[in-house]
């Protein structure tokens, strides 16, 4: 594995080829907020909360730290006006769905996000996909999946699989940043009886 030298928040970091920017930052104790990221799961890059500003080849842009591989001489800024502003809007968009989510509220405070900026559409789920991916990648059961697309996207338990597996597992419950999952399962449970 080749060593790659990059800069994060002005600090020089030695990283290994194939590492993500998030991993490189964590290796020197720099915290980048995440929602959809989980160590046991493949990088997904969906919530975009981990967005950072990166300068590569003379071009500055936003990249998702959890999926973007480190590059030689890359200069990363994990906080900047642009980064903070972007995270703020993303949080406000998610808070419209899950205003009471504890991790979201904590981040909202940090970035000055207004939970009431957008009209509430309480779906409770922020579609981070932790449950779906955990069930597929770690448990290899696929009892929960995404359905539909775009603004109509949602998670749903597949009753035939869920009925035989979920009751004794429930390992995805604590992963859910909005505690919605448990409620969804209880509902499915009730319906399946």
């Amino acid at each position: 594995m080749n060593e790659i030298i990059l800069q994060i928040d002005g600090r020089k970091v030695q990283a290994k080829e194939g590492m993500t920017v998030l991993q490189a930052a964590q290796s020197i104790g720099i915290n980048i907020p995440t929602l959809c990221h989980h160590e046991k799961l493949e990088s997904y890059g969906a919530c975009r909360i981990c967005i950072v500003e990166a300068e590569t080849g003379g071009r500055t842009r936003l990249i998702a730290a959890c999926v973007y591989p480190v590059e030689e001489n890359m200069a990363v800024r994990t906080r900047s006006e642009k980064v903070d502003k972007t995270r703020k809007v993303l949080l406000e968009e998610l808070l419209a769905h899950a205003p009471d989510s504890v991790p979201l509220q904590a981040l909202a405070q940090e970035y000055g996000a207004d939970k009431d900026r957008f009209e509430k559409e309480p779906s409770f789920c922020v579609l981070c996909g932790l449950c779906v991916r955990y069930c597929a990648e770690v448990k290899k059961i696929n009892a929960i999946g995404f359905s539909d697309r775009g603004a109509k996207r949602e998670i749903s338990f597949i009753p035939e699989i869920a009925s035989g597996n979920c009751w004794d597992c429930k390992e995805c419950f604590p992963l859910c940043p909005t505690s919605y999952l448990q409620a969804a399962y209880v509902l499915i449970e009730a319906l399946m009886r």
Binding site: T86, L94, K152
Partner: peptide, 22 residues
């Protein structure tokens, strides 16, 4: 059109288009 055709995976596209459309 885009709010229906976005895959819905990432927040800025799914939610941003939804809010702009509103």
């Amino acid at each position: 059109f885009l709010t229906e055709e976005s895959c819905g995976k990432c927040t800025p596209c799914r939610e941003g288009i939804r809010q702009m459309l509103k």
